[in-house]
């Protein structure tokens, strides 16, 4: 007789995201959500640590899973919305582990991320990438764009974060780094400038980048815009303005869009950033947008936050994003 497993507590067991089955690429099925890590932070200009985020976010996700697994009938009710969450564990969500990473070789790492993401989309699955610093969005979005373009479509890029990613060639970092993601996406032809939208940048930007935005047709919603309009309306605005003619949207969720008071575990120090509630409302809109075909969650640096709440928040936001689209976590 075999030993029977009960619900695992959040600190027990091997941490895959949401205790999803660990699988390899060849087992991916169309319609699945593939959690995949890109633990790369070499292109971080200041405090590193995002290389530890995939593992930390996986661990942080076990908390809610335990609640679901140990609840009667595996149901939880969201007190704000009244929505019932069910844990059905149908295998819609799978964990691919981490992509190959070469910390002292930016190009080789980028190729790994681009190929990995492309293969997930080619197999009909939804890539949910755990970064990594914000640079990983560049190769991952390019991987998705390749497939979308091949199929005759156009991809929009909606990015959350405190920075614009519009840096040109930099004397220290060169062309491809965390500060140049959007510029490189446009330059490489992966995304048209009109199909770019930022949600949440704040602070100062170089004049040249400001001018670029004014002439590019891209959409900028600053942190202040979000404070005024709310996370949901600002996100709807971004989707409406930037996705004309697009049948697919890549969303990059830089956790540095949040104020450091709420998310201390991020490389930059952000003053005037979003609140978790604002970002939660934004994610709720994205979760119900069928054109979103890929999501990354980047810039969590867990060791800068001994409280662990930044990684927890990241995993909660992923839960919120998955709930409407995954049979594993279906609203009843």
């Amino acid at each position: 007789m075999s030993w029977e497993r009960g619900p695992l507590l959040s600190f027990a067991g091997i941490a895959t995201f949401m205790r999803a089955p660990a699988v390899d690429f060849d087992a991916l099925q169309p319609g699945q959500v593939a959690i995949v890590g890109a633990p790369f932070d070499t292109t971080t200009a200041w405090r590193q640590g995002a290389r530890y985020a995939p593992r930390a976010i996986r661990e942080a996700s076990l908390h809610v899973v335990y609640w679901l697994d140990s609840a009667y009938e595996s149901e939880l009710v969201d007190l704000e919305s009244g929505t019932t969450l069910q844990r059905t564990a149908t295998g819609t969500v799978v964990d691919l582990g981490d992509l190959n990473v070469y910390p002292n070789q930016v190009t080789r790492s980028a190729e790994s991320f681009q190929h990995g993401t492309r293969e997930i989309v080619e197999r009909g699955a939804f890539p949910l990438v755990l970064g990594g610093d914000h640079f990983v969005s560049l190769p991952c979005c390019r991987g998705v764009a390749e497939v979308v373009t091949q199929r005759g479509g156009m991809l929009a890029f909606i990015t959350f974060g405190c920075e614009l990613g519009l840096a040109g060639e930099d004397p220290v970092w060169g062309t491809d780094w965390s500060g140049s993601v959007v510029r490189r996406l446009v330059e490489t032809g992966a995304v048209d400038a009109r199909n770019i939208a930022w949600v949440g940048p704040s602070g100062l930007a170089p004049r040249a980048e400001w001018d670029w935005i004014q002439h590019s047709g891209a959409t900028l919603l600053t942190a202040e815009d979000v404070h005024r309009q709310g996370g949901a309306d600002a996100t709807r605005h971004a989707l409406t303005s930037a996705t004309t003619d697009c049948d697919a949207v890549y969303v990059s969720l830089g956790m540095d869009v949040l104020d450091s008071a709420h998310a201390p575990g991020i490389g930059p120090a952000v003053i005037g950033g979003l609140t978790p509630t604002e970002l939660g409302h934004a994610v709720a809109v994205l979760a119900r947008e069928p054109r979103v075909v890929a999501l990354d969650v980047v810039e969590v640096a867990p060791h800068l936050d001994p409280s662990g709440r930044t990684a927890r928040l990241a995993s909660n936001l992923i839960f919120d994003f998955l709930a409407p689209r995954s049979a594993d976590l279906s609203p009843a």
């Binding site: 070499t42 292109t43 002292n104 930016v106 220290v172 970092w173 060169g174 491809d176 780094w177």
Partner: peptide, 8 residues
């Protein structure tokens, strides 16, 4: 000394 973190 000047360093380029992504360029060994």
């Amino acid at each position: 000394l000047p360093v380029q973190p992504t360029d060994v």
